[in-house]
Amino acid sequence: MNIAQIDFYSHQNNTFLHKMSVSIKLLCLSIIILFAVFSSDYRVLAGFAIFLSGLILLLKLPFKQMFLFLIYPMIFLIFYFISIKNLSFGYAFLIITRVLTIVLGLLTVAFTTPYNKVFEVFGKFLPNKLVKIFFLSYRSIFILTEILENIFTAIKLRGGIDFKKPFKAINILKNVIGFLIITSIEKSEKMYEGLKLRGFDIND
């Protein structure tokens, strides 16, 4: 999962969904979620999921990449269904179509709307401090992604991580994580200094 990559697609601005107002998109998404949560007819929900898939294909959004995001909810559903005694097909289809509809709706919005625009809308009803943390996180993602990419390039040049040798792989990864934590703390201090210089105060 690479948020920086999703952000790249959301900034393409080449489809009508990219150009649509963020508030309207979020309102439509809320309606889809509420409809799916309350709906009890899996055929209608399946229709919605097919419609959203068609929309994704029509807009030439990266369907394969989006499809990968369905894996985690599906893993949960497999566990969940295995754990239900006398599972009825009606219930299973209902839950699957609900999940598909909601996740496809979310992904369509995520791949066509930059996160910062979503947070601007959040700012209308969430506390100011919280929204500022969202913005700081968003900004930091790109700084850390670049650092992580550089680290992995360096590791690859030295032979890469071989998971067939788990102890060695864990040893390399723990150093990567330790380094990443130290770097992120240092970067946060630099970011604080920059913010302070510009008169930024989280409590304003």
Partner: peptide, 21 residues
Amino acid sequence: TPTKKMALAGMFSALMLVAMS
């Protein structure tokens, strides 16, 4: 919640998200 702590919170959130990749 001083600004310094919030900058750290923002950076650590990013770290958690990046680590997932």
